[in-house]
């Protein structure tokens, strides 16, 4: 089997197409690198604390909802929680309805503004789920196993 066409004209056409795809591919790749921050949907708490996020501007924060940080104000539907990237944390205030998947320890993407006091005031909150799918029994078994492991390391067995 011949991989390359025999005819010189066809050869030329093939070379032209390969060149064109390579050219456009590298142009797109360069553009993507240049736009990197713009294509990214959100800033992590560490980026925000480092001052990378825009001041006085709407932007999105993304990370995990810190376990044990969720507090609801029963009077006015105000919700307080902390977003973490496991290194740094940013406190968030939100008033409104949360998506079904919003949970402590799960991913979250919130849009809003960072106040001068370092509290992020969110106008929308979206849940970001991970790529894992399993039945509840399996999830229970995994968390039990982890607890057991933790206990055994703590007691030194």
């Amino acid at each position: 089997m011949r991989l390359l066409p025999k005819h010189p004209k066809r050869r030329k056409r093939l070379a032209l197409i390969v060149l064109m795809i390579a050219g456009i591919g590298s142009a797109v790749a360069l553009a993507a690198v240049a736009l990197r921050q713009n294509i990214n949907l959100f800033y992590s708490p560490s980026q925000i604390l480092a001052g990378d996020a825009p001041r006085n501007h709407l932007f999105r924060i993304g990370g995990l909802v810190e376990k044990g940080s969720l507090k609801r104000n029963s009077n006015n539907l105000e919700i307080h929680f902390e977003v973490t990237d496991t290194v740094n944390k940013v406190p968030v205030i939100y008033t409104g309805i949360l998506p079904d998947l919003f949970r402590e320890g799960q991913g979250v993407v919130a849009q809003g503004k960072l106040g001068a006091d370092g509290v992020f005031v969110a106008s929308t909150v979206l849940a970001k789920h991970d790529e894992n799918y399993m039945p509840p029994e399996a999830a229970q078994a995994i968390s039990d196993a982890q607890k057991l492991k933790l206990q055994s390391t703590m007691t030194g067995n």
Binding site: N40, L41, H129, D130, E131, N132, Y133, M134, P135, A138
Partner: peptide
Amino acid sequence: WNTLHQGPTVTRFGKSAMATSM
């Protein structure tokens, strides 16, 4: 990039992040 959409569940190489029954 970071996105709202999660990463791949089924990958050609390596274990997929999904229970076999699913």
